[in-house]
Structures are given as C-alpha cells and as structure tokens.
Design a protein around this nucleic acid. Sequence first.
DNA 1: GTCTATATTGGGATAGAC
DNA 2: GTCTATCCCAATATAGAC
Lengths: 216, 216
Amino acid sequence: MVKGTRERIMDAALRLFGQRGVAGTPVTAIEAEAGLSAGSGSFYRHFADKDELVAEVVDREMARVAKIPAAQVSRAVAGTPAADALAGQLLADLDFLRQLLPMIEILMWERGRLPDLAARVQKVMLDRGIELGVADLLLCAPTAPVREDIAAAAAVMTSAVVGYFLTVEYFGAPPLQIDPQRFTTTLARMLAGTSPTGARPDSVADEHHATDQTPT
Amino acid sequence: MVKGTRERIMDAALRLFGQRGVAGTPVTAIEAEAGLSAGSGSFYRHFADKDELVAEVVDREMARVAKIPAAQVSRAVAGTPAADALAGQLLADLDFLRQLLPMIEILMWERGRLPDLAARVQKVMLDRGIELGVADLLLCAPTAPVREDIAAAAAVMTSAVVGYFLTVEYFGAPPLQIDPQRFTTTLARMLAGTSPTGARPDSVADEHHATDQTPT
DNA sequence: GTCTATATTGGGATAGAC
DNA sequence: GTCTATCCCAATATAGAC
C-alpha cells in the first residue's frame, strides 16, 4: 500500500521545515519534494494553507513521540552498577532527543509564531526525560552533591544532555570531540558516583519503570 | 553625539533578527525600527542589500564579544575554595552566553545559510568558555570522575551550562525551576567536590568583575 | 486529484524629487 | 540622506481543464 499524497506532503514538509524553517520553505518546494509538480496548486487539494499543514505536522509528530516507550534502557540495565545504569539511561535520553529533533527544529524556527508549541515540547521532555532521570537518581547511590539537592542535580543532568545534543546538532561536532559514550559515562559517574570495579551489588536499578507502556 | 543612521539600522536589525529571524524581518520593518519611513528605500543609502547588513551586524557583534574580558572571575577568586570559585566561574559563563545571545539567535535562524557563522561562534565559545573551564578544573581539587577524564568533564560542564542557558531562553524558565545559583553551585560541586561547611572565610565574591570594561 | 495558467500580495530594490 | 513612487520577483492561493 503506497502512502497517500497527504502523507507524502507531511513527510516532505517535516524534512524541509527542519532544514530551512517553515517560513523558508515555500509551498512549491514542498510540492516538489512530495513528488508533485512544483507551482501547481495541488498542495491545496490537501491542506487549506501552509498554517494548517504546520499544525497537522506538529500534531502528528507529537503523537508519534508520545508513543515512544521510555523504559527500554532502564529495564534492560537492571542489575548493573548505578553509574552504568544511569549512563545507559543518558544514552537513551540522547536518542530520545534525536527522535524529537524535527519538533525541536520546528520549535526553534517557530517559537515566536507558535508559542504553545514550546509548552508541548517541554511537556514531552519533562514527562520522558526529567522525571525518569530523577527516579533513577533516587534509586542510585548518588554522589554527595547530588544527595544534597536532588532537583538541582536533575537539572544539571538534563541540561548537560540537552546542551550536548544541541551542540552536536548546531556545530556538527560534540564539545571537545567527546563522543557520546565518554560523555554519558562521565556525567553518570558525577551523578551516581564512580563505579570503579563494577562492584556495586544489585537491587539498585532493578525494579523500576519496568512496564512497557504502549498506550491504548 | 547622536548615533548615525547606519548605527541605528544595525541596532534595530540586531534586535529584530533575534526576535523574528533574518528572513522574517523585512527591510521595511528595519527602517521603521530605525526611525526611518517604512517602505522608503532609505535603508539602501547605507547598505547595498540585506545580506550586507547581516554580515556587518555579525561582524560588529563578534568584535564586541571578542572584547569581553574573560578572566575577571578566574583571577579574582584565587584563594577561594575550589567549588565556590568554579561556581562563580559558571555564573560568569552564563552571563557570557547572555551577551552572546544575539549571535546565538542569528545562528539558530541562519545556520543553514551562513555555515561559517557557526564556526565563528563556536570559536568564541571555545576560547572563552571551555579553555578557561579546563584550566579551572585542573587547578581545583576535582572529584574522582573528573580526574579520570578531564576533557570529558569539561564537555559535561560546558554542555550543562549551554543546555541550562538555552532551556531558559527557549522555554522561558529553567529546568525544574532551579535558579542559576542553585544550578551552578550543584554543578560546581559535582566537578570540584563538595565544599562542606561553608566555613569559607571571605574574599569570595568581593573583588571580581569590578573593572568596568568600556572599550576604546 | 493533478495539471496549466493566472490573479494577488508582500517584500526587495531602484529612480528621481527635494 | 530621506522622502514618494514605482518596478520586479517570489510565493500564496485560486480557476478551470483534464
């Protein structure tokens, strides 16, 4: 079954919006990218105007992201030392951000024109990223500075992941050429304490947010 | 002495570019913001076209930022406890990013069209942010995970600061409502080790960023 | 439901008076 | 060196044939 034109238009738009921005993407370019004749109004047989398209694309993308199960990694690393478990979680967070990337890009271009979009993206990130992260921190054996102010530590954790991700996206290379493995490992140890030998017993990160939560 | 029209145009453009992007800012709006009659081509008596204006604005901004003295804090906090000194440095880094904000905003809008701009902004940030940060880390009594991989720790530090800053800018509020003080304090302790009692004497936040830096 | 063709608007840029 | 007026083009959107 071949995708309908409407779907192809939305796919094309998502691609182009990220690259050139909504305002920078003429309808004619979307038509071309979707395999329609550029300049023909064929687009308008499927959407009333560009704003409607933007809204639909955003909605579809948010729905898709909301369905991404959040718990894969945390569950999988049950039984590993705290820092390693957390490092795995952080790698998964980077991956989650990569999946959010089209939305983030649209948000960057349109945050002035679509103020509510920021709130929606933030909500998804909060739900998936930060709360889970805090749970992990509480279950780990956190380092002293973390224990002193867990919320602040969670903010540091999230900020670091977001900053690393955006640096890669915007500058094309990670800060100081540190690859994701090294980055997440170091960050995790700063949060959960160094796991020197792999000694950490167990029962740390076992039981939580195990349930896969594919909804409805 | 009143600013010349050329300067006022550049000021207006910098303001508008950040808010609405370069492509989203018509020349007519720049004229209006600069106190000229919108729609009159008066703009073109000062710049060949919009691209030239963008280039000039970027150049002026980069020159301004390059002049911002970087060392205030690091120098001033000599002798203070490692974590407190570092926290001060991180606060200053946040402030430095705030001063870079117009450039960052332009970069976000134009990174596709002005690929070299990304490299220039990155260079400024590297020069001012990361290298100093690494120096501080080496001089501190770093925590174990930091000592293990200083470069990775510096990447974490920078990413966290950048991520925190951008979160505030894009979402209007810091992650988990953690204010800059709490954020930098926690991050600093994760890097430099906790400074337990707060017994630390004096001379902490006195002497730094004193020098007014009005150039030329 | 896609095409060709076209009306329309908004914004970049120029001409020439003052 | 700023104005009014205008040109021009790119992009939105529509009309109507097929």
